[in-house]
Every structure is written in structure tokens, then in C-alpha cells.
Amino acid sequence: MPQFDLPLEQLEAYRPERHEPADFDDFWAQTLTASLGRADAPRFVEVDADYRELVTEDVTFSGFDGHPIKGWMLRPRHADGPLPAVVSYIGYGGGRGLIGEWTALPAAGFAHFVMDSRGQGSGHRTGDTPDPGVSGPHLGGFMTLGIESPESYYYRRLFTDAVLAVHAAQQHPTVDAQRIVISGGSQGGGISLATAALAPTVLDVPPAGAIIDVPFLSHMRRATALVDTAPYSELVRYFRTRRHSEQAAFAVLDYVDGVNFAARATLPALFSVGLLDDVCPPSTVYAAYNHYAGPKRMNVYPYNGHEQGGPVQEAEHVRFAREVVGV
């Protein structure tokens, strides 16, 4: 498809007004503090996945409200620790998948902690974590799940899980807690962006950097007006039947919108954008990027869509992670 959003020179200057709830910081501080207070020690159980040069572990850690969340931990078998680590978050509809999908970063010398996404895992990757917090009528998917209030909204739980995943990775005996990079694309990019803002507010040791590829959940008012692709189409279809509910719904979405997290995030960050992306439109990515408060750089892919730069960007991940952790 052709480029459909603003020209690049306008995208680079695009910094829209933010819609920020007055109690945004208190809401997240109370949410995170309560769940950290209920967290048990994470469990790492080695499994034989037939990757002889890697140690592979099944992970269970405490997420939102103490709910058990699954994950994978992979690391090079013969590397001397403590190791730098990457904590990865998954795109929309996917879970932690299979161990064999995550061998690249351990091959580069990193420990790799992969967080499962509660209630997801029937899309592009399998998942193993239920969501005990499910409630209320919604239109399939997760975009409208619990949208009646900030307290019940799905992404409150998922973002809390993500912060506690960093906390769990820091407790692994072979991980250097001061050299952790968070990473994700699409939904995972939105999670990484939120975690970049939230983790330093509650963890004794913040992450060292953040990889934020084509972040979902940013500048959502514009996204729903600009594209009719999933997952944003879930909101559009919800509004079709629940007419005049937009104002109340967006008031809830403001608590999880990436532009509000970006204004609070100060970690060194690597972003990416595809100028043909009709899932997370370029202007919504740049809205988050241009509000981002920390050191940052953007990799632009003019002729790519939502694939996050593919293997080219994945190689950039390794270089960026090495840069921020000093290896």
C-alpha cells in the first residue's frame, strides 16, 4: 500500500496534545505497589529443550495482584555470569510460544526472559497464562476487555505483569540486575514503552534501556480515526453498537496511552517505524517518540509496514542492547 499518513518531515515534528488523567501517577503507583507487595519469589525450573548450548528454564512469577504468570528464561550454557539480559514482551494475540523461537539473543551472549501475555496465546504464538481478572462485556480480543473503568481494564493487569517481569528477571542468580534491556514490538512495543516509564518508579534498579518497535496503544484517538485494521478496529466496532460511549472509553484508555508513558520515560530507547504501517500508523508511533523524555533514536523503514523492520531491526536490537549494557 502507499504511504497514507503524514509526510516524514511532518512526522518528525508531530507532537500532539496529550490527554492525561489528573491521577495518572497515583493510579499507577498504587497499582504497582500493591502487586509488588503480593509478589512471591519467581520459580525457574530447567527443562530439556534439546538446545545443548543453552540452559532453558520454565518460569513462573507473580504478576498483577499476585497472579501466576508464565515465561521462558534462556541463557548460554558456558558463559560466565552475571549476564546482561533482555526482557521481551509479545505482540497482540500471542503468548510466550515455544522455546525454539527465542534462541537468537542467548546465542549473542544475553540471558533472555520472555514474558507470557495473560489470556493471550491463540494468535501467532501459543500462551500458557490465564487471566483471572476477566470481566464485563467486550468485543472479542482485549482492546475493550474491562473498559468500563481504569481499575478493570485489561492493560492495567498486563502492564503490571510487565514491570514485575523485570523484577523477576533481576532475581535470577545468573543475571546482572543493572544490565537489563526491555524489548517488544507492536503490543510488545506498547508494553515496553509503559514499562520504561513505570519500572523506575518502583524498582530499586531500573532497566538500562528500552527497545520500542512500532508501539501499539499510542495516540489512540488518532489511530481509531485513521485505520480500520485490527486491533484498533475492535474499538471502532465497540463504538458502533455502544454509541456515545467514546468519551468514557477514551478516558479509560488515557491511563494506558503510550504518549502519557513516553512523557515520563527517561531510559535510553531505540524505536522503529514503518511508513506503510496500517496497524500502528506512523503518526501514532511518532506521537510517542516525540514525547519521549529520554535519549532516543528512531529507525525508519519507508517501504515496510507492521513487520517492525524484520531481521534488519532484530540485528539492531543486539547492537543497541550491547551499547546500553556495555558489552
Rank of each mutant, 00 (worst) to 15 (best):
R264N: 10
R319N: 13
L158R: 03
L226P: 00
F320W: 03
V175P: 04
F239L: 15
V318P: 10
Q30M: 03
W28I: 03
A210D: 10
E101Q: 15
E307R: 03
Y154D: 06
A210W: 08
L32Y: 04
H124D: 11
M143C: 08
Y301D: 01
T33E: 13
S35Q: 09
T224W: 06
G146R: 02
I180A: 02
G184F: 01
P207V: 04
Y238T: 10
L105F: 12
F110K: 07
L270W: 06
H172K: 01
L98P: 00
T241F: 14
M143P: 00
L83F: 07
L54D: 03
A263G: 08
R237H: 15
A225P: 02
T103S: 07
V45H: 01
S149T: 15
G146T: 07
L217H: 08
S152F: 04
A265R: 10
D204K: 13
G309D: 02
G146V: 03
D128E: 15
E323N: 12
V285G: 00
F261Y: 15
A251S: 15
R77F: 07
E323K: 14
W102P: 02
P282L: 01
E148F: 07
R118E: 07
D26S: 09
D25A: 14
L36Q: 15
G209C: 03
G294D: 07
P2I: 14
I147L: 15
P7A: 05
H78C: 00
V259S: 08
D254E: 15
P311F: 09
S272D: 12
I69P: 03
V318L: 14
V163G: 06
P206N: 06
E148I: 12
A111C: 11
T103C: 08
R242C: 08
D116A: 02
H317G: 08
P281L: 10
L98R: 13
R96C: 02
Y155Q: 05
A169N: 02
R179Y: 09
E53A: 11
V175K: 04
A225C: 04
A262N: 03
A208V: 07
V59A: 01
A199Q: 09
A196C: 10
G37D: 09
L98W: 06
G63P: 01
V285E: 00
A288V: 10
P7Q: 08
R118A: 11
A111D: 06
N290V: 05
H78N: 13
T126K: 10
V325G: 06
A104H: 09
L217E: 03
